[in-house]
Design a protein around this nucleic acid. Sequence first.
DNA 1: TGCCAGGTCTGAG
DNA 2: CTCAGACATGGC
Length: 311
Amino acid sequence: MPRVWRRVRLDGPVDLAHTLQGGQAFRWRRQADAFVGAVGARAVRYQAAPADAVDAAAWPRATRAWHARYLGLTAQDEAARRRLAKDPVLAPALAAHPGLRLLRQEPWETCVAFLTSANNNVLRIEKILAALAQKGEPLDAPFAARAFPAPEVLARVPDAELRRMGLGYRAPFVRESARMVARGDVDLDALRGGAPDEVRDALLALPGVGPKVADCIALFALDVGGAFPVDRWVLRAVSESFFEGRPLTHQAAREFARLRWGDDAGLAQQVLFHALRVREAAPGVRRLGGKQPSASRDAAALPGAWTRSSS
DNA sequence: TGCCAGGTCTGAG
DNA sequence: CTCAGACATGGC
């Protein structure tokens, strides 16, 4: 099957490093000044646009729209950002990271990624997903890229092999979830755009999926903007920024977010998470951009991004 | 060398 | 219903 490589200019500030390797997605690789990976059945290469790049109307609109959606560069995303900017407490963090976007990823891959993320660290999550991806179809690209293996495929991988990939005790979770999704017991696509509570409850049926992972899948893959995943970082951020550091339950943090930000809670979550992690520069956290992260560096947002994708 | 990692599951109270 | 502990694995 012939592949056409297209080069598309995307508008809007995108901080590729922080967006693609900031804990939302785990399969992007840095290649010189670009990021290579796969989204669904497309191999993709993202790169900051040259400063003198000019837009061209002839470039394929559909492809551009597709990438704009994936990278969180739609008009809706901009609107959400503007609304959140009115929150005086959130505004500084938001302004400090103008290029941080909310990705719209593939549901099944996101499901497995965050199943894997529980009680795990980013480096290991990346390695495990890379190993799992070897079960997927290779994509035609000038770099190594594979589609993420379908649930039917993962459901057939023996438990011992999954463990060998580093999944450990999560192996049966992945296998059983794969089986359930393959059977249609949980229809991920049907949950797209649903109400946060309903989507979450539906996802909780999957083994290894608890409240936090469910909200991650809802937010990063199912267009549930009001989903507010509460992990240790976000819990801390909410407590410190809004409750003077008082202890807070996960549920309380989530309800607070829903009340304060409504359908924009998810983007707020990403901003809070990212701001805290950058501030901490915690050990084990990848040094983004290969340098000390800093607000000024972030503020120098990229004017756009080039993409290549087979179509 | 231990501790820790974008939690979840389980059993006890 | 709330709440410790356990939980595979490997990086730091």
